[in-house]
């Protein structure tokens, strides 16, 4: 059996093209979220939107059987289809990551949720002979590391897990 028989070719094609774009934008928003517009929440919502597109165009079965390799069962139990269990685990792991970054600060004797950040530039000592090394390695590869980013990843998982669980349960009915 093939998936998405009841949707048009246009819908399926558009979904195939937009899906990677949406996910890339989501990841970009996630990565810049700790000091620019974006962040774990909005990235999570976008990712969920991408999944919603797959749900609508290819159907619930597609996500469950192809992506997760589970048997599809529309009304698994009180708590919804089986796939919801996976989403709930994601939700829990996300919360654990977010809370974990807060607790991590306490290991250094700082108050709960204290964050720190550092701008890391790769050393140009051994590649100084390359023309423009300072620009290439010093500027392009410069990365602003922040522990708040880890927190954002936690938020991202919470939002993705939570919203997908709602989609799966409501969609399953």
């Amino acid at each position: 059996m093939s998936y998405g028989d009841d949707t048009t070719v246009i819908a399926r094609t558009v979904a195939r093209i937009t899906l990677p774009l949406v996910l890339v934008v989501a990841i970009a928003l996630l990565f810049q979220g700790h000091n620019l517009p974006g962040g774990g929440f909005i990235a999570g919502v976008l990712t969920t939107a991408a999944f919603a597109l797959v749900y609508i165009v290819f159907g619930m079965e597609y996500v469950q059987e192809t992506i997760f390799g589970d048997e599809y069962e529309p009304a698994g139990s009180v708590a919804g289809p089986l796939v919801v269990d996976r989403y709930r685990t994601l939700f829990g792991v996300g919360l654990a990551i977010a809370a974990g970054t807060g607790l991590g600060a306490m290991a250094f004797g700082k108050p709960f949720l204290t964050h720190t950040d550092e701008v890391v530039k790769p050393s140009t000592e051994y590649v100084a002979w390359i023309p423009g090394a300072d620009f290439i390695f010093g500027t392009l590869f410069e990365f602003h590391w922040a522990t708040a980013f880890v927190f954002d990843i936690g938020v991202y998982f919470v939002v993705v897990g939570g919203l997908l669980a709602i989609l799966a349960v409501v969609g399953g009915e």
Partner: peptide
């Protein structure tokens, strides 16, 4: 002045318990 982590302790214990119970919800 040392940070009094004990103030936030009850809050964190409850939070961590909530998260852990969520993570192990299958068992």
């Amino acid at each position: 002045m040392a940070t009094e982590q004990v103030v936030v302790a009850p809050l964190l214990v409850a939070l961590v318990t909530a998260i852990l119970t969520l993570v192990v919800h299958r068992y």
